[in-house]
Design a protein around this nucleic acid. Structure first.
Lengths: 251, 251
DNA sequence: GAGTGGTCTAGACCACGAG
DNA sequence: TCGTGGTCTAGACCACTCA
């Protein structure tokens, strides 16, 4: 738990930057001498031990944090991260979203003006209204993602008001499921969390996140869009695919 | 193209770090005053213009590069990135990989010892052999990803030798397609490119990449695994899903 | 060779968490 | 209150690209 080599690693490649060699050394140490949850020595000590400036050591730590191997907390310390959490996508009824309410916490559910980015896909004019349901997603009692579902008023005309958020959300989802789903499209890309998003994910702004954008087609139009944001350092997105019958046999 | 605000942004939130406010200012400038391919002023000028140390400015630029909004090249300069490239996954025959040979360049195809990470999934003992096909993937004449396909010898006993790489690969894929595909599983996660990987992607080590791991089941066992690595800054992974008939209608 | 981004240093101060 | 990681500075030198 505490050895942590200090001498220049024999695997060190000259010509590679110091912070990268350092990352390699640390990675090896993490794998061999540490377990999930173990606390690393503080940055000043580590830097001294490796004979580099603190900034250089930090550069190495930043890489390892991006890779999800370390968790750093201001005021607390740096710990070794556990294995990635599998987040299952596509298993929720193989269709409309939100059928599975386990591990999901409703943040709010309201009718709001469309944001520019969805004005086109939801075929709404700017200033048009859509329903928005925001939920936080958990896995193993840990926050892993933030899910934002936009629903066109063409498929769900109005929301019941005067009821709690959770109930309003349930009613909306029920109406959604009443329609026949005609198509679905998914895209995954990397982004960074802005301030508000970051707060919900309990991370600082600028944290790398995986954004899954799903568009749902019904009644011959784009009926709904969900934008789900997952912590890139702790999550693996698992796409449970259809069984054998849905797969085309060898042609 | 050249105005680029210098005064403290009125949207600046005190309490937010300088580099983050800077990122916001730069992002606004990129969106409003620049086009794809435009060259930004150099780092020293920019830092002076905003009245911050170069390191602080660089911190902001690093964020924007991670987001895929900027492209920085040593010795050359910093340019505004174009829109993300859509990489289509799941459209290749809805089954076995590599049916679509467009925009793919064979790097090599050989029988090699299994690496530890796949010894278990491919059910091979350490020191067992598997076939490995490595290909580079292009889109719009740009390198977007590196694809590594491992095939168990249980489904493809042996590779024809004494033929060029490309032909050997074709023959292997043909044999693969001869089997009935019984299942497929996909996972997406964030990683960073190591040295060799980075070279293939024409990026420096430490670059953020999206890794798509797909396992194929045939003959009641894991028959093949592909590990595809895509540049996280320039790619959006698009999952073309099955048409209406495969989607379960409203329950 | 001039100019660019990349690396590294040695310091300082700040914001937060835990005891 | 003290120790942690987070931010910021002002310099230096290096590696690369391009004219």
């Amino acid at each position: 738990m505490s050895s942590m080599a200090t001498m220049p690693d024999e695997t060190a490649v000259f010509g590679e930057p110091k912070y990268w060699q350092l990352r390699t050394s640390l990675l090896k140490a993490i794998d061999e001498d540490f377990n999930s949850g173990d606390i690393l020595p503080n940055e000043r000590d580590l830097a001294a031990r490796f004979g580099v400036a603190r900034a250089t050591l930090r550069h190495a730590l930043e890489q390892l944090e991006l890779e999800g191997r370390l968790v750093r907390k201001r005021g607390a310390g740096t710990t070794v991260a556990g294995p990635r959490v599998d987040v299952s996508l596509g298993a929720d009824g193989e269709g409309w979203p939100g059928v599975d309410l386990r591990d999901r916490e409703v943040i709010d559910c309201a009718t709001v003006p469309v944001t520019d980015e969805f004005a086109d896909t939801l075929k709404g004019r700017p200033s048009a209204l859509v329903h928005r349901l925001r939920r936080r997603q958990f896995s193993m009692r840990q926050v892993v993602g933030l899910e934002c579902l936009y629903v066109s008023r063409a498929v769900v005309p109005s929301l019941s008001t005067r009821v709690p958020n959770f109930e309003r959300a349930s009613l909306m989802l029920r109406q959604l499921r009443g329609h026949r789903l005609e198509g679905r499209h998914r895209a995954v890309e990397l982004a960074v969390a802005e301030a508000e998003e970051a707060r919900y994910l309990e991370r600082p702004p600028g944290t790398a996140v995986l954004v899954v954008t799903t568009t749902y087609t019904a009644l011959g139009r784009t009926a709904a869009v969900t934008v789900a944001t997952y912590r890139a350092d702790t999550c693996r997105l698992a796409f449970a695919e259809a069984g054998p019958t849905a797969l085309r046999p060898a042609s």
